[in-house]
């Protein structure tokens, strides 16, 4: 598929997802009231619903989805492993641990910004540990090993807080947060997440050519002028900063980083650079749609976003499996 057409289609999907996202919610809001609120007239209730509730939610859906998508694509390219996703470098778990600590010790109740800020701090602590553990080595394997060590440690820390929770409600609060959601987010959350995500996306998009060169292996890439050390630095910074910011406001949302590159890759020339931007747009559209789905599916408690994305992940892999086995 020509690149311009693919990007155009994905942008259209994003726009459709945003329209649905701001059009659908628990409080009914007619199209005319919404249009009036958008143009600045409208009644104050409509404006509050639109600007303080639905807009931040849609914006966070787009930016978190874009970040997870591009991080998955960049890591798959760097590690040359189609099963890589942001969690393999341990940053998402560490960010979640930061947030969980904020919940466990009650800091989160002091100010709404404390939880996301502690999650970002968790992500950067993981980045520091990644540097210390994986060293200056240029091999991707050391990065995966260090990432798994950090992810496991952070996972154990999260389990410990659940284990030691003083009462079932506290444990429930942590477990619910971990499922991932964009419910009740404000522009404060956007302000915390967006700069982190913008920096993360920019750092990862910058790696496109170096990732392409890695198709030829590490020696081949270096002989084409790629500085593997610098590339790894940009990649780790980008993932830590962006995914840290994303987890901080949304909780743990799995599978987006894993499946989106798989969905868009067959529509590109399959080079890692060609998958980056479409993965960002695809991730943005997918997560925003999933967040609409969460509101549409009637359940007693609102469905959590992480649950929906996990369900969406399964068919994508089944299709790939069937293609691999030439059943379809």
């Amino acid at each position: 598929m020509p690149r311009a057409l693919l990007l155009g289609l994905l942008l259209a999907c994003c726009a459709a997802a945003v329209l649905l996202s701001i059009g659908i919610g628990t409080a009914p809001l007619s199209f005319s009231r919404m249009a009036a609120a958008l143009t600045g007239d409208g009644d104050p209730v409509a404006r509050i619903i639109l600007f303080d509730l639905r807009m931040p939610r849609a914006l966070l859906g787009l930016s978190v989805g874009a970040m997870l998508g591009v991080a998955g694509a960049a890591l798959q390219g760097y590690l040359r492993n189609p099963l890589a996703e942001p969690s393999v470098v341990g940053v998402s778990n560490a960010a979640a641990l930061g947030a969980v600590i904020a919940l466990y010790f009650g800091f989160a109740a002091l100010h709404p910004a404390i939880l996301p800020v502690m999650a970002v701090i968790g992500a950067f602590a993981a980045l520091g540990a990644l540097f210390l553990l994986s060293g200056a080595s240029e091999s991707p394997l050391t990065l995966i090993l260090a990432g798994i060590a950090i992810a496991t440690l952070a996972g154990a820390g999260i389990s410990l807080t659940l284990n030691l929770s003083p009462n079932p409600f506290a444990a429930m609060e942590i477990a619910t947060w971990l499922l991932g959601s964009l419910e009740d987010r404000s522009f404060n959350h956007v302000l915390i997440a967006l700069p982190c995500i913008a920096a993360g996306v920019a750092l990862l998009l910058w790696n496109g050519r170096a990732l392409d060169a890695l198709t030829l292996g590490e020696d081949g890439a270096q002989a084409l002028g790629v500085d593997l050390g610098q590339m790894r630095l940009r990649l780790m910074l980008g993932v830590a900063c962006g995914v840290g910011g994303a987890v901080a406001v949304s909780g743990s949302i799995g599978f987006v980083g894993l499946i989106v590159p798989h969905i868009v890759r067959p529509l590109t020339d399959r080079s890692p650079s060609a998958v980056l931007l479409p993965s960002a747009l695809g991730g943005a559209a997918l997560l925003t749609f999933a967040d609409v789905l969460v509101r549409l599916i009637p359940t007693n408690n609102e469905l959590k976003l992480g649950v929906v994305t996990a369900f969406l992940g399964v068919p994508v892999f089944l299709i790939h499996l069937m293609r691999e086995r030439r059943l379809w």
Binding site: D212, T215, R270
Partner: peptide
């Protein structure tokens, strides 16, 4: 160095299923 020395490494490492033309185009990266 990349513009001065072209290198064909040993083995046939290819991590992604690129088109031949796209693969050859990697030579222009430097």
């Amino acid at each position: 160095i990349a513009r001065t020395i072209a290198y064909l490494p040993q083995g046939q490492t290819l991590h992604w299923p690129l088109d031949v033309e796209r693969l050859v185009a990697l030579g222009r990266l430097p």
